[in-house]
Design a protein around this nucleic acid. Structure first.
Lengths: 332, 332
DNA sequence: TTGCTCCTCACGTCACGTGAGGTGGC
DNA sequence: TTGCTCCTCACGTCACGTGAGGTGGC
């Protein structure tokens, strides 16, 4: 290094011994330390020489430029690290696997929705997927088709994406939590169900709605209070009522759905809400629901009373309503 | 690049045209893309060639190593960026200034306390200081002498360190807040006083104590409730009482200190606390304090009554007590 | 005499970029 | 004929590191 600096003329020893050895005096050492100091700021040898020798060379812009370049380098190194960690997470055994993963990651970063989607759908089912990258992608995916492909891929990966989805469920941004809960509904594991249950307590009504509908679909009675809330609020109430109906078929003893609807009826004072709750009772099989409906035929609200009467007059109301819901195109 | 890869044997075109042009067939292009993919992971050309050509070359350890090195590079680039920002913040006009700042920054990072201290004390008073670096240093400085030198330097920089100190006052770590409040006491500006006032509401008693004593010293009556609290708690109570005394001398009308002590006496039920409050009253000049003391001569607690009697018998109790406190070595 | 440090000269590293001088196809 | 792209060969970049072969002082 000393020889190099000497050759460049950056730090020259003032003298030489009789044997030809370089002899550095105090001023040379000082200059050497100055060079080392500036080098810790990332200056090149040439910039260092100009800084020390050229009185016109001002530090402000050079230091500013160095900072800008360093920030840019950090950003790209950070991207590189994320890529490496995503690849590493799939524990590839051959470079072929690495190439497939890199191709997928690059496609996911691309601006073209069809490219993103195509890369996802063309994945070999036997290769393991970079689930954290998929979760990251699904949390910022605007294109519903690509989001669908991501859900499918995450479902294929089983529960391996759930830790990242659970973390996303703690996000401050409601949109992120919504996308997380939607992705979670695609995963059919007990852990996914547990995560959906936690989402029932979310502040955002959309998050709660999606969690409740997904849990209801899994026959999970933990969804019942939120499903009743949906009927009350008139949000996705037909589907919610339908799910309450099948829940009381599959788990009749564990939870009193008729009781919950009755409580909601007692608490509701506006006519449309009471009508929705009455219609929901039509979905519930068994004597308990019919009993409540019978009482409702004498309700003060004539629409409610009339609806209750009509429901009781039908032979098999549940099956009819359910098939109607199933015919809806894209219920989301 | 194509010529380079050709020469290295990394990507060779299958054929040549009659004119000698390189002719890449589909497989060559594919290989080129594979090379590009692996290069986005940070592999060197040589590693890329081995990965694509050597079936024994396993990806796991290479990818792991790349990730480790990338993390190390990010860390050192981050350090570099911090240094650059500290230098940039001082807006140096000449490289001499830059060298001085870098010398100071390197000394502050050194493990030797005396080196840190010496670098601080030898700073030319005319050069501007990297205040954020000083604040960063003071928040993690264990050596009280170095901390003192840092306080002195921050005081010299006026209020420029206050934004960083204010941020540190929001830290979760009580020790950081303590160091921040201590550094703030060295700064004699209105902004520093405002920051100390906010520290009066801190959860940590030490933070409150230091803020209150510093504010009292500045004649700020906002400190009164906390100073009374200190007397009640028996923590730094002699100094607190002394400051209450001088506050009632300098700002007698703005705040009723005697009233505050009286309220504390009414609320306190244990003997030592009532005694400390009685002694504090000795520091307060004027008829109001003497009146309360006169009433206390008939107190149920005989020690309190005796002390009140003794205080009233003295000619100039305030001055005596104050000079005693001033004789303490290192009141902190 | 034996290690030891220093010397010079020259080449290697890494992934290209950049001329100089020349050529093939429109 | 005129641009244009491509070709090869060779050198430069950046901050040193690494031998090879030699030498001075203990």
């Amino acid at each position: 290094m000393l020889r190099h600096y000497d050759k460049l003329g950056l730090v020259r020893p003032t003298g030489r011994t009789s044997g030809g050895y370089r002899e550095y005096v105090d001023d040379d050492i000082r200059r050497l330390f100055h060079v080392e100091s500036l080098r810790t700021l990332g200056l090149s040898l040439d910039e260092t020489r100009r800084a020390l020798d050229d009185p016109d060379c001002a530090p402000v812009e050079l230091v500013g430029n160095l900072a800008r370049h360093t920030r840019a380098r950090i950003a790209s190194e950070q991207e590189l690290l994320t890529r490496l960690e995503h690849v590493d997470a799939t524990a590839p055994t051959r470079w072929d696997d690495v190439l497939r993963i890199v191709h997928l990651l690059r496609a996911l970063e691309s601006g073209s929705g069809s490219l993103r989607q195509q890369a996802l759908l063309s994945q070999d089912p036997s290769t393991s997927l970079p689930v954290d990258a998929l979760v990251e992608a699904v949390l910022s995916e605007d294109d519903p088709n690509v989001a669908g492909a991501l859900h499918w891929s995450l479902a294929r990966a089983g529960g391996r994406g759930l830790p990242a989805l659970a973390a996303a469920m703690e996000s401050d941004a409601a949109e992120v939590r919504r996308r997380a809960v939607e992705a979670t509904t695609a995963v059919r594991t007990a852990d996914a169900t547990a995560l959906l249950r936690r989402a029932l307590a979310d502040d955002d009504p959309t998050v709660r709605t999606r969690a409740a509908l997904a849990l209801g679909d899994r026959g999970d009675t933990a969804a019942v209070p939120t499903l009743v809330e949906l009927v009350v609020a008139g949000r996705r109430d037909v589907e919610a009522a339908e799910l309450l109906g099948s829940l009381s078929e599959t788990a009749p003893s564990t939870c009193d759905i008729v009781g919950a609807l009755q409580d909601a009826l007692a608490a509701a004072h506006d006519a449309p809400t009471r009508l929705r709750l009455t219609q929901a009772l039509a979905e519930i099989p068994g004597a308990a629901a019919r009993e409540v409906l019978t009482r409702l035929t004498a309700d003060d609200d004539r629409t409610v009373a009339g609806t209750a009467t009509a429901i009781l007059g039908r032979t098999n109301p549940g099956r009819r309503s359910r098939s109607r819901v199933r015919e809806d195109a894209d219920p989301w």
